[in-house]
């Protein structure tokens, strides 16, 4: 460096840049070695026919128990509605219950425009874009009722797009 830096400025920049490097190392370790990348699977789907994907056939929507403490939740998003499938009585589901400590895989695809999918209060926070499957696996270990909100603008009824996830003991 041809430029002159004050001694204190050098210390400051070393401290500041050092902190940024530490942040990056911590994040990189989590992301690359522990697999906590933000969701990014690049799995594509036909945006005009999401049912062409097994997971988004009407009968496969909603909560499915895979094994004792493993669940899959498939959701079809459209303006302005999350489709969690239908219950035994044929009623639309917008509330699901999961036992505490379960590992849950959320898979979401959109039939129309861009949506968001946030299980508020958890790290399940994904963009849902036409042509892609958004998915994230998480362990739900805190009991309570979580609001699922569409947190990406999708049109005039955007704020009416929601559901709830209950984690019970």
């Amino acid at each position: 460096m041809i430029m002159h830096l004050h001694k204190y400025e050098k210390i400051w920049l070393i401290f500041g840049i050092g902190s940024l490097i530490v942040f990056l190392v911590v994040l990189g370790y989590g992301a690359f070695w522990q697999g906590t990348h933000p969701q990014s699977h690049g799995v594509t789907i036909d945006p005009n026919n999401i049912e062409s994907n097994e997971a988004f056939k009407p009968e496969n929507l909603g909560l499915t128990k895979v094994s004792d403490d493993k669940y899959i939740v498939n959701i079809a998003a459209s303006a302005f509605f999350y489709d969690f499938g239908k219950d035994e009585e044929g009623k639309t589901v917008n509330h699901i219950r999961i036992p505490k400590g379960s590992t849950v895989l959320f898979q979401v695809a959109t039939k129309d425009v861009v949506h968001g999918f946030h299980v508020a209060g958890t790290n399940v926070n994904m963009m849902v874009e036409p042509g892609y499957v958004s998915s994230l696996e998480t362990v739900m270990d805190k009991p309570g009722t979580y609001t699922v909100v569409c947190n990406e603008y999708c049109g005039l009824g955007h704020h009416l797009m929601y559901a709830t996830v209950e984690v019970y003991e």
């Binding site: 004050h6 204190y8 400025e9 210390i11 400051w12 401290f15 500041g16 902190s19």
Partner: peptide
């Protein structure tokens, strides 16, 4: 003399 500056930026850091 930039002691005050140094303390200030370190607080920020």
């Amino acid at each position: 003399d930039l002691k005050g500056t140094f303390v200030s930026v370190m607080i920020l850091g």
